[in-house]
Design a protein around this nucleic acid. Structure first.
Lengths: 214, 214
DNA sequence: TGTACATCAGTGAACGCGCGTTCACTGATGTAC
DNA sequence: TGTACATCAGTGAACGCGCGTTCACTGATGTAC
C-alpha cells in the first residue's frame, strides 16, 4: 500500500540552452495526439496539453499567444498535407477529368481521416478563426488553382463543358466535395453507402448525372 | 446617487396554477432570442437563459432534462419551418424540375437566415445530438421524400435523367445544397457572389453544367 | 583562472470566472371533509 | 363556513469543476572581463 502515489506524469527534462523551440514542437505533437485520441476540440485545453507534455501551463504561453493560436497551429500542420496529397494523387494521370476526380477524392479522404481538424478549420465559427487561417488555406490557394487548371485543360480536351471561368467551376466543385465531407463528419449515421461510392455518385451527378435529355 | 442600484432583470410573475407550461414557452422564446442576438451557441447557458426569463436557474430543470435538450428544442422549433417553407415555395409550380430548384433554394435561404440553428442541428458533433434529433429531422423525412417525388416526376416528364433511385438522387442533391449552406456559414468571406447567384450556378452545375460534350 | 552578470527555459501560485446541476425548502392556491 | 392537507410553481444556496491567463520568481548555463 503506497502512501500518496504520485500519479502526475513525468516531468519533462528542460531543453538545453538555445533549444527552447523544442518545446514548441512537443506541444504541437502532444496536442495533435490529444485531438486524435479524443476527437473533440474541447479536449485541447491548455492545462491538458501542458500535462501531456510534462510541463506547467504557463510554459505554453512562451510559444503561443493564446489557446486559439495553438489549436489552429495544430490543424494547420495537418492541413499542409492535403494540398500535397491532392497533387500526389493527380500526378501522372494524363486525363484531366480523372485528375479532377482524384483531387476531390483525396480531399474527401483527408477530411474523413482528420475529422476534428476538418471541423476546426472548415466548419468553425468565422470569428474563432485567426486571420491567417481564415482564407483559402485548405484546398485554397494551391488546391483550387490546380483544380482550376485541370478544369480548363479538361474543357480544352473536350472532356467537359465549362459554363463559368475555370476558377469558378473549381470553387463549385470544391463546395460539392465539402458538402460531402462536412455531412459525413456531422452525420456519419446517415452514411447509406461507403464514402467512395457516394463520392462516385456525386461526381457522376456533377459531371453528367442529371443532365437533361436532348 | 442611488445606493445599490438593482441591475437585476425584473422578476417574472409566477404562472398561475395549472399553467406551469407557460414557463417552458418563455424559456424557449428567451433562448431563441439569445441565440439570434449572439449568433453563438455558447451564449445559451442555463444561467443566461434563466436570467433573460426572469427566473432562477433551477427552474429550467423543471421543463428540460439538461442544457442540451433545451438547446436542441430551440433549434427544432426553427427546423420545423424549413419543411413548410420548402413545400410553400414549391407548391403551385407545375414544372417538377423548377420545384426541385425552389426546394433547394428554400433550404439554402432558411440555413442562411438561421445560421446558428443550422450549425447546431446539422454541423454539430454527432455525440452532442440527442437521439431524437440525430435522424433526418431537417430536410429529412418530409423534405427528402418530397424532393425524391419531384425527382421521379421530373424524370418521367423527361426533364432530367436519373442514374439512381429518386431517393438517392434526392440525397445527393441535398448534400450539394448542404455544402453551400455550411460553407457560407463557416466561411462567409469566401462568398464571391450573392448566394442566389452561386446557388443558380450550383444548380446548373448539377443539372447540366459540366455535362460532357456528346 | 575567477567572478560578476545576463540570458534562457521554464515554474508555482494564484486570479477570477462561469459553468451545469442538485437539494432542501417556500409560499400561494386549490380541494376534501 | 372553517380548517387541514395536498399540490404546484417555483426559489436560495451551494457543490465542485475546469478553464484561460498573469505575475513574480528560480536555477542552470553561458559570456565578458
Amino acid at each position: 500500500m503506497r502512501a500518496c502515489p504520485d500519479t502526475r506524469p513525468p516531468r519533462r527534462v528542460r531543453s538545453p540552452r538555445g533549444q527552447g523551440d523544442r518545446l514548441r514542437e512537443e506541444i504541437l505533437a502532444a496536442a495533435e495526439n490529444l485531438l486524435v485520441a479524443s476527437g473533440d476540440e474541447s479536449a485541447l485545453s491548455v492545462r491538458a496539453i501542458a500535462a501531456a507534455v510534462g510541463v506547467t501551463p504557463p510554459s505554453i504561453y512562451i510559444h503561443f499567444a493564446d489557446r486559439n493560436e495553438l489549436v489552429f497551429a495544430v490543424c494547420a500542420r495537418q492541413a499542409e498535407q492535403v494540398d500535397r496529397a491532392m497533387d500526389e494523387r493527380a500526378s501522372g494521370e494524363p486525363d484531366p477529368l480523372e485528375r479532377i476526380r482524384l483531387r476531390g477524392f483525396a480531399y474527401l479522404a483527408w477530411g474523413l481521416a482528420n475529422p476534428e481538424h476538418y471541423r476546426i478549420l472548415m466548419m468553425g465559427r468565422p470569428a474563432a478563426t485567426p486571420a491567417r487561417f481564415a482564407g483559402h488555406r485548405v484546398a485554397g490557394g494551391g488546391g483550387l488553382d490546380a483544380l482550376a487548371a485541370d478544369m480548363s485543360e479538361a474543357a480544352e480536351a473536350g472532356r467537359i463543358r465549362l459554363r463559368h471561368p475555370p476558377r469558378v467551376s473549381a470553387e463549385l466543385f470544391w463546395m460539392v466535395v465539402h458538402g460531402m465531407v462536412s455531412m459525413l463528419i456531422a452525420k456519419p449515421h446517415l452514411e447509406s453507402a461507403p464514402p467512395q461510392e457516394t463520392y462516385q455518385r456525386m461526381f457522376d451527378l456533377v459531371l453528367l448525372g442529371l443532365a437533361p435529355r436532348d
